[in-house]
Design a protein around this nucleic acid. Structure first.
Lengths: 103, 103
DNA sequence: CCGTAATTTAGATAATTATCTAAATATTTG
DNA sequence: CAAATATTTAGATAATTATCTAAATTACGG
């Protein structure tokens, strides 16, 4: 559970990946179409895709020889929950931490 | 403007820093009091404090020989705005990006 | 002022990560 | 099946970053 949280925050830490997300808001695109928008190699983009997928921020679907990337629609809600958990004043499911350094 | 956004997402990407934020929800603490909660050196924590401060997620106030850390109260709202900007469907202030790779 | 306590800064190191090129895999079409 | 196209995987490298120890800074109390 904490692992998913970490994967999401990590995924959002990179500006290229945030840019991919913003691009996908307008609609799903194939890896190639996405690649046209970014000045890095397709291999590097593929690496970013994998990280976004691992965080379940995007979903994929094969369509013929293309792979279509879409935003995971439920993500907005999840992010709200994460933010609440981070900033909201003290919830029930909260643990004190001392010597369990998160890393 | 994009720089601040990056500094915030970067700051939140580290689990120790998120833990610091959660700890500060319960109230302001001195650097030393915070240090008691974490299994890393004070020097390392100071580094994390600097990053949180650079993102303006926490504020500091000197009180005698102590330095008191507090959550920046407006941050929740700012994060909402960032999320909207990331996920919400197409705002006015949006720029297309092609060859200006965010980095 | 001097000594002590609190915190940060400097400098070094190890781990992580973003990127590249080259090669591998998967899918369609002739 | 062979050739072409789309995408990912492998392996290497350079940059970033989390952490440490040691030293510097800042403030207080006698």
């Amino acid at each position: 559970m904490a692992a998913r949280q970490q994967s999401i925050f990590k995924a959002l830490a990179d500006p290229t990946r945030r840019s991919i997300i913003r691009t996908l808001r307008k609609g799903s695109l194939t890896a190639g179409e996405l690649a046209e928008q970014f000045p890095i190699t397709r291999a590097s983009l593929s690496h970013h895709f994998a990280i976004l997928k691992a965080a379940d921020l995007v979903r994929t679907e094969r369509r013929g020889q293309h792979i279509v990337y879409s935003l995971n629609a439920t993500v907005m809600e999840e992010m709200m929950a994460l933010l609440m958990d981070l900033f909201a004043p003290e919830t029930a499911g909260d643990k004190k931490q001392k010597g369990g350094g998160a890393r």
